[in-house]
Structure formats: structure tokens, C-alpha cells
Design a protein around this nucleic acid. Structure first.
Length: 884
RNA sequence: GGGCAGUUAGCUCAGUUGGGAGAGCAUCGCCCUUACACGGCGAGGGUCACAGGUUCAAGUCCUGUACUGCCCACCA
């Protein structure tokens, strides 16, 4: 039974109620045994440390739209929620808390510290889940996962051991990126390169035999003590004679060779390069290639080591100044120029990273890359497709992935070293004794795994792998991965690698990469800039549906979103519009209308609306399945506001008041049906307001809108002819309104109108639409006929050949109608000219397709007609004026 | 250095196979018409970045240029 809705839509109240109801009734907890095609999505797990930002809101909204729509299409939908333990980020947060207590993690010790992080996670980690809830996400909370859950940890260990046994994980001493602040190794893509101002020093290296010198250029003079060669290009004429000679490291006086390698760019600096294998990635490669000595002169804290001779114990930064001064004193500093060069920074704390040699664990990504690359687009399609180039390029140039981190929060590496025999054991469970020598004393590797290692397993670890679960059988691979392009490599590519390797199938059929949300000026949102838009504040202020609709409407493929609060405010109006349309409907739907066949209804407006509804159903459905979210939102917006509200609701007002019971019932039934269906169409984007209205609509079999199927097509309601006729009537109504507005006649002024139709058909149509025309253009009288005598003082227009003459006697200054008509005539004339020009072009008439030419001819004829009509009207009008 | 986007109304952006330039917001005018002033009705506003080319026809396809943004890269 329908009730009156309150006058204003109150999102807070409504949302809270539905959130609770949906969660309690577990409507989003699917059974693997349920019918329907499988549809699954895993959430990109937010960091436990995180507060939900607008990027999450976009991500979650789009996923929710897809899931709700998939349910409407009868699919068996699973959306798995979860969180990521976010190793470094979370450790940093907790360390910061400790610092306020004047403590460091080392004060607590490993075990106590990890316990402390767990406690922190229990306290604060759930905030992010409430935020996911706030967005109206239809996730299955019964399947909530965390990357450090026991089950997922088992998966991590299993994967590690298998990859190790297959030779795809190995340990070795390599040069890696070291963050001296986080005190850990970083993977290559965890380093952000930024252009920074620096100096390029030119330093003279004297030859050992005193026969001369070579000048090198460097940006990092503090690494000079670690030099083990000077390198030039073998093609370089300037240095050819020096190759093979020995030179001396400045200040230290150590002897090093001069070698040649085509890697050296002759154009840059002096064309001679100092080689410091332990402190530069390229020098490392050179050192390996030329069997150079490896001398580590800086430690993991950025302090000079004992091998740095006189500089031992000094911080790198101080050492730089000191060594430059020393070289200068020795007369070997030949210059220093300013230059911009790119410097690597830690993506978590933004400290400058040091290239550093150490023993680390690696995944042989180079071996896993080819299959991963080739899976796209064969097995997995990426949208937008333009990312495929980037995908291929990255995988073609990939290097092995450093997965060990020198922190405490994360999955500890399942490798043990026997203290007795030194043998390494890699195993899923802690070994009780060394398999080699049987000794019982084994030390586990201190390091933990990169956070992205466990995230890489997410699509199957969340479904219970390595167990053989019903969920996995039903829902793996997932249907689509929806995420931001910023983690295409961190996450998407690695999930692909692991999915292909362990499951034999890629983890998702589609990858939809959505935009980055920026501020109104196009800048990245960040807390420090203070330009963030907090989704929760927006929900609080404008309601969740308004936020969701805004994000959906702006989610055009392959383009960033510039968001401002004003846009959200704007779309709140749309939510309110829907609410009020429903209020209006409910006033007239106190009781269920009697069912009628929608494809056989009377009334041009009813036929038109149902015809349009079919089109929108089609268009929106296609847009959803093709990830054209913005289109889907726009289709819904236009239909609801511009067609349903602006026209249909106004057109049926006379019907609803009518004494003709049949007519009133038809209007009410069409209203009921169209509103119901449009609610379903909009529901994926605006779940709350649609659910609330749905519940209030009268029905014989109450349901929850979340269980409602996407409305079936009604081919018999597609009626192009009726739609065209309705559009003519609309044009006529608009013409009257325009005249009134332009002549400054109050809209409420009930003028008289004469219509002179071009033919019988038009005449009949106008006659049948008499009431619609009179009501919507607010007329006092309406005469239709070819022979009607027009009043002297009148304003006029032409619509599809039909002359419209409006009596304006005594209302306005009559000359203003002449200027108005002149303006109309000028407008038509311009079009006539353009059309004529085209048709007089023989190339056009002979070469363009016949249909196009015909259309142009019809168009030109109509324009000519309109022009002639307007001229006639003007002539009659001016003559009448003159006659007075 | 390589790659990818973008450049359309004052602002934010649509524009799917080339065939009469669109929306929202903002602006201006009229209206509190019994769902909604978070509203209704109407109006103004664009050399589609620039230069060439293909075509009967280009915002749309091709080439180049400029500017903006992003990604990747071992120029010390």
C-alpha cells in the first residue's frame, strides 16, 4: 500500500536503513550452487592504514554498478571485499605512533612490535570497512579477506615454495634500491623518479705513470672512494690511447684501470665515466661485465664505511662537501655546473633512495613475463585498449622483481638457514630439523615479503586456494578487474603472472582501468596540497546517490576526472528530481492501477513514452556492459528529467483528472510501469533512493529492488511513427512558448491560437492532440483549420509547414513581432543558403549516396517552405498594421 | 630520449562506423502553473588548438606543429 513520501529526500535516514537491511538479510551473499552465469569481482583491497579517498569512492562505485547490473541480468554475483596489510605503509604508521611515546620498534623487539601492529589493525583497520559500507557497496561481507589472514598466508608460503623449487624465486647479492629511512629494499617500480637540481662536478683523475690525466663528470662525488674503474667509449678518439692504462682515485690514490664500453655516451659530460659498481645500477652492470672490484663505501644508513678511507664514519652528505673540498685543494676540481637530473625517491616516504648492494630475494619476472604479455588481449581484454601498448612495453623490458623487505610487518620469508651446516631450507612449515645435517637449530630469514607479493595472489587466495573450494570452481577466473591505471604494474601484471602460473588461467577476463580523480584545476589530490574531496563528507552533505551518480557520470573511458564539489551538488538535484517525480506519481497511485497491455495503450503521449523507454533500456544496458558508465548515467538522466518529468508528467495531468475512468487508469498504469522500470534502470547507480521509492510503490507482490531483473524488452512498444508525431506536437507547443517568451507575454496569459495544417493527416493529429497543446502551451482557445480567418494583430510561427497564428491584440508593441519574425526569417535564410549551395554542387549530387542527397533535398524543401510561410505571415502582418 | 592521452560554448565535459555542432553548470529574460525554486518555460553563447592532406563532404581519417598532463627509460 502506497504511502505519502516526505517532501524532501533525506538521504541519511534512508541510506542507513537500507544499508542495515541489505547487510542483515545477506542478499549479497551468493551460494556457489545458485543458478545463473557466474560473475565475480575482487575488490582492490584498500590499505588498512588508509582512509577512503575519492579514488576509492570511484573504484567502489563503478564495481558496485557492475555488480548490481549483473544481478539484474540474472547472474550469480560474488564481490569479495578485503584489505591489504600494506607492509611498509602500515609499519611506518605504527612506528610514528611509537615515536610519540618516545620509542622505536627496536625498543619493542620484533615480536612485540608485530603484536602492536596487529592491535593497531584491530582498532583502526575496520574504519575502512565502514567507509566501503557507506558507499552502498553490495559486497559479500561473509567472505571478507585480509592479506595476512591465516588462509591467505598459507597461499603465500605455498606459492613461495613452489616458485623456489621451480627456480623462479632465487636469492642473491645484487644492487637494489635502498630506502635509508624505511631501512629496506624496494622494487624497481617502488622508486619514483623526479627531476631535481644538482651539480655536475668535473674531476681530474691522474694517470698512475704520471703521463697525464683523464677528466670525468659526476653528480655524486661522495662515491669516489668506491670507484674501481674509469670508463670511456671505445669509439672515442680523445681517449683511445688511455684505454688499458691505470689511473688513480683522487685523494685516496688507489690504482684503477681505464676500461672501454660502448655504454658510455660520448656526448655527455666529458665522455669519461667513473665506475662505482656498488653505488650505481649502471656501474654495477659495468662492474659485472668487466670483472671489476666491488667496494662498498656507504652503509645502509648512508654513512661512509671503513673502505672509504679518510671518510669512514662520515654521513654521505657531509662526505660530499668534504671530498669536493679535498679534491679542490689538490687542484683536481676542474669545474662544477648546475644541472637537472632525475633522482629516485621512496614511494612510501619520499626519501631519496640509494643504490645499494645486498643479499635479497627475487622473483624471476623475466621468465614469467612472456606468458603474461601474451595473455593480452588473447585471454584478457584491457579497457581502454590504449593501455595494451604500455602493457607490452613494460613486460618486454621487465627486470627480476626484488621481493624481500627488511621490515617486520608482513609475510615472513619461509626460508631457514641451519646454524650448524649453513644449508638453506625453504618450506611451507617451520622445519624441526635441518634436512641436510639433522641439526635442530635453524634460523628463519629475517625479511618479509613485498606487500604486492600477497596481493598478486588475491584473485585466488581469497577464494580459498590452495584448497579446492566450491567458490573457486564457480567464480575463478573473475569477470573483470576494476582498478586505477596507477597500479597496472604493481598489481595487475603481477596478478596475471601468478594467476597464469598457478591456476593456468588469467585471473580476470576483462580489466577496466578507470581514471584518476583530480581536483577542478586538474591537479592530483593530496592531503598536503589540501585539495582533497573527502567522499564521506560528500555523502554526509549530498547523499551517497548524488556522489555515486556524479562519479559514474564523469567516468568516461580513458580520461581523468576533474571533480569539484559543485558537480556533486548539481547531481544532488537529480536525485531530488527523481524523488519528487515519485512523490507526484504516488499521489496518483494510492491504489494499484488495473493492468493494461502497454503495447496497446491509447494516447500518443503514452505510446511515445513507452517507445522512448524501450530505447533507454537498450542504450543503458549496452552502456553498462561496455563500461561506458558516463553514457549510462547520461541516458538515465535525460530520460528521467527531460522526457519523463518535463513532458510525460505534464502531459498526463489532464488524464489523471479525467472523468473517463479508462483513460485515467491507462495514464496511471503507464505511469506506474514507466516509473518502476526507470527505477530499476537507475538502481545500479543510485541504489538507495531507488530502493526507497520502489518500496513505496503499490504492488501485488512486494519485492526488494535488488532482486529485480533488468526489464525485458517490449518490441511491440517500439513505435517510430507515433514518436515522430508526438515530436511534432512537442515542436508546436515549444513554438507557442517561444513566441510568448520572446514577446514578453506572461506564460500564464491564455492566448488564442490558430493552426493551419498542411494536410488532412496533420489536421487530424492536431485535433487529436488538442488538449495536450492547450494545456502545455497554456492557451485560451485553439482553432484548427485551413480556412480560418486570422486576426490583424498576431504573432506567428511555422512548424513542419503548419502555420501557427497567435492573437496578441493589445498585449504588446506590434513592431516587436516584426523584428522577431525578421530574426526567424534570417535564421531560415541562412540554412536555405547552405542547403542550396550543397545541392548546386554537382560533385555532391552525383557522388554522395542517394539517400544522403535525398535527405538534403527534403531538408532544403522544408526550409524553403518554412521561409515562404514566414514571409507570407510577415506580409499579412505588416499589411494589417498599415491598414489600421 | 621513447610512449600514451588531451586541446569542442565562460567552466567541466559528451560527440560509437566521416553526412544538418551537444549536455550539465554559469549567464540573461519571464514565471512561486496544485511533484519538485534542489523547480518550470524560453534565450544568448563555439573558425571544434594551429597548418597541410584525403574526400562530393572532416570535430570525426592521414601528416606535421604548438601547448598541457601522465607513464616508461641506464646519459654519469
Amino acid at each position: 500500500m502506497a504511502e505519502q513520501l516526505p517532501k524532501g529526500y533525506d538521504p541519511k535516514n534512508v541510506e542507513a536503513r537500507w544499508r542495515e537491511r541489505w547487510e542483515e538479510s545477506r542478499v549479497f551473499t551468493p551460494s556457489p550452487d545458485a543458478p545463473g552465469e557466474a560473475y565475480s569481482i575482487v575488490i582492490p583491497p584498500p590499505n588498512v592504514t588508509g582512509a577512503l579517498h575519492i579514488g576509492h569512492a570511484l573504484n567502489i562505485t563503478l564495481i558496485d554498478v557492475l555488480c548490481r547490473h549483473a544481478r539484474q541480468k540474472g547472474k550469480n554475483v560474488l564481490w569479495i571485499p578485503g584489505m591489504d596489510h600494506a607492509g611498509i605503509a602500515t609499519q611506518n604508521v605504527v612506528e610514528r605512533v611509537l615515536a610519540t611515546e618516545g620509542k622505536s620498534r627496536r625498543d619493542l623487539g620484533r615480536e612485540a612490535f608485530v603484536e602492536r601492529v596487529w592491535a593497531w589493525k584491530e582498532n583502526y583497520g575496520n574504519r575502512i570497512l565502514d567507509q566501503i559500507r557507506a558507499l552502498g557497496s553490495s559486497v559479500d561481507w561473509s567472505r571478507l579477506r585480509f592479506t595476512m589472514d591465516e588462509g591467505l598466508s598459507v597461499a603465500v608460503r605455498k606459492v613461495f615454495v613452489r616458485l623456489y623449487n621451480e627456480g623462479l624465486i632465487y636469492r642473491g647479492k645484487y644492487i637494489i634500491n635502498w630506502c635509508p629511512r624505511c631501512h629496506t629494499a624496494l622494487a624497481d617500480d617502488e622508486v619514483e623518479h623526479e627531476q631535481r637540481k644538482g651539480k655536475l662536478w668535473r674531476v681530474r683523475y691522474r694517470l698512475a705513470d704520471g703521463s697525464g690525466s683523464v677528466v670525468i663528470a659526476t653528480t655524486r662525488p661522495e662515491t669516489i672512494p668506491g670507484d674501481t674503474a674509469v670508463c670511456v667509449n671505445p669509439e672515442d678518439e680523445r681517449y683511445r690511447t688511455l684505454i688499458g692504462k691505470t689511473t688513480l682515485v683522487p685523494v685516496l690514490g688507489r690504482k684503477i684501470p681505464i676500461i672501454a664500453d660502448s655504454y658510455v655516451d660520448m656526448e655527455f659530460g666529458t665522455g669519461a665515466l667513473k665506475v662505482t659498481p656498488c653505488h650505481d645500477h649502471n656501474d654495477w652492470t659495468l662492474g659485472k661485465r668487466h670483472n671489476l672490484e666491488f667496494i662498498q663505501v656507504m652503509d645502509e644508513n648512508g654513512v661512509m664505511t671503513g673502505d672509504a678511507g679518510p671518510y669512514a664514519g662520515i654521513a654521505g652528505k657531509t662526505c660530499r662537501e668534504k671530498i669536493v673540498a679535498d679534491i679542490k685543494a689538490a687542484g683536481d676540481l676542474l669545474g662544477a655546473e648546475d644541472m637537472e637530473h632525475s633522482v629516485g625517491h621512496c614511494y612510501r616516504c619520499h626519501t631519496v633512495v640509494d643504490p645499494h648492494v645486498s643479499e635479497q630475494w627475487f622473483v624471476a619476472a623475466t621468465k614469467l613475463a612472456p606468458a603474461t604479455r601474451d595473455a593480452v588481449p588473447e585471454l584478457t581484454q584491457i579497457y581502454p585498449e590504449s593501455w595494451i601498448t604500455t602493457w607490452n612495453h613494460w613486460l618486454d623490458n621487465i627486470r627480476d622483481w626484488c621481493i624481500s623487505r627488511q621490515i617486520w610487518w608482513g609475510h615472513r620469508i619461509p626460508a631457514w638457514t641451519c646454524t650448524a651446516c649453513g644449508k638453506l631450507t625453504v618450506a611451507e612449515e617451520t622445519p624441526s630439523a635441518c634436512p641436510s645435517c639433522g641439526a635442530g637449530d635453524l634460523a628463519q630469514d629475517e625479511d618479509v615479503l613485498d606487500t604486492w607479493f600477497s596481493s598478486a595472489l588475491w584473485p585466488f587466495s581469497t577464494m580459498g586456494w590452495p584448497g579446492k573450494t566450491a567458490d573457486m570452481a564457480r567464480w575463478y577466473p573473475t569477470s573483470v578487474l576494476v582498478t586505477g591505471f596507477d597500479i597496472l604494474f604493481f598489481w595487475v601484471a603481477r596478478m596475471m603472472m601468478m594467476g597464469l602460473h598457478f591456476m593456468g588461467k588469467p585471473p580476470f577476463r576483462h580489466v577496466y582501468l578507470h581514471a584518476l580523480v583530480r581536483d577542478a584545476a586538474g591537479h592530483k589530490m593530496s592531503k598536503s596540497t589540501g585539495n582533497v574531496i573527502d567522499p564521506l563528507a560528500m555523502i554526509d552533505k549530498y547523499g551517497c546517490d548524488a556522489l555515486r551518480f556524479t562519479l559514474t557520470a564523469f567516468a568516461a573511458m580513458g580520461r581523468d576526472i576533474r571533480l569539484s564539489e559543485k558537480r556533486i551538488e548539481g547531481y544532488r538535484h537529480f536525485v531530488n528530481k527523481l524523488w519528487n517525480a515519485a512523490r507526484f506519481a504516488l499521489i496518483h497511485l494510492a491504489e494499484m492501477p488495473r493492468e493494461v497491455d502497454p503495447c496497446k495503450v491509447d494516447g500518443l503521449h503514452n505510446q511515445w513514452l513507452l517507445h522512448r523507454l524501450e530505447a533507454v533500456k537498450n542504450d543503458m544496458g549496452a552502456a553498462f556492459t561496455e563500461y561506458r558508465f558516463n553514457d549510462a548515467a547520461q541516458f538515465g538522466y535525460k530520460f528521467l528529467w527531460n522526457e519523463f518529468c518535463d513532458w510525460h508528467l505534464e502531459l498526463i495531468k489532464p488524464d489523471l483528472q479525467s472523468q473517463d475512468a479508462e483513460r485515467a487508469n491507462t495514464a496511471r498504469y503507464v505511469l506506474w510501469l514507466a516509473l518502476r522500470e526507470v527505477l530499476v534502470l537507475l538502481h545500479p547507480v543510485m541504489p538507495f533512493v531507488t530502493a526507497e521509492i520502489w518500496q513505496n510503490l503499490p504492488t501485488e507482490t512486494p519485492t526488494d529492488i535488488t532482486a529485480e531483473a533488468w526489464p525485458a524488452a517490449r518490441p511491440d512498444c517500439v513505435r517510430e511513427d507515433e514518436a515522430l508525431r508526438m515530436e511534432f506536437v512537442q515542436e508546436a507547443i515549444v513554438a507557442v512558448r517561444t513566441i510568448k517568451a520572446e514577446l514578453n507575454i506572461a506564460p500564464s496569459h491564455k492566448v488564442g491560437l490558430l493552426l493551419r495544417p498542411v494536410d488532412e493527416a496533420q489536421s487530424a493529429l492536431l485535433e487529436a492532440s488538442r488538449e495536450m497543446i492547450m494545456t502545455l502551451s497554456r492557451l485560451g482557445s485553439l482553432q484548427i483549420g485551413a480556412e480560418i480567418h486570422a486576426p490583424k494583430a498576431s504573432a506567428s510561427a511555422v512548424v513542419q509547414g503548419c502555420q501557427m497564428i497567435m492573437s496578441i491584440n493589445g498585449m504588446i508593441d506590434l513592431t516587436s513581432e516584426v523584428t522577431r519574425l525578421d530574426k526567424e526569417i534570417a535564421k531560415v535564410e541562412k540554412d536555405v543558403m547552405a542547403a542550396g549551395k550543397k545541392l548546386h554542387n554537382e560533385n555532391f549530387t552525383s557522388r554522395a549516396p542517394a539517400a544522403v542527397v535525398q535527405r538534403e533535398r527534403d531538408h532544403a524543401a522544408a526550409l524553403q517552405d518554412a521561409k515562404a510561410n514566414l514571409l507570407a505571415l510577415k506580409k499579412r502582418f505588416t499589411e494589417a498594421l498599415a491598414g489600421e
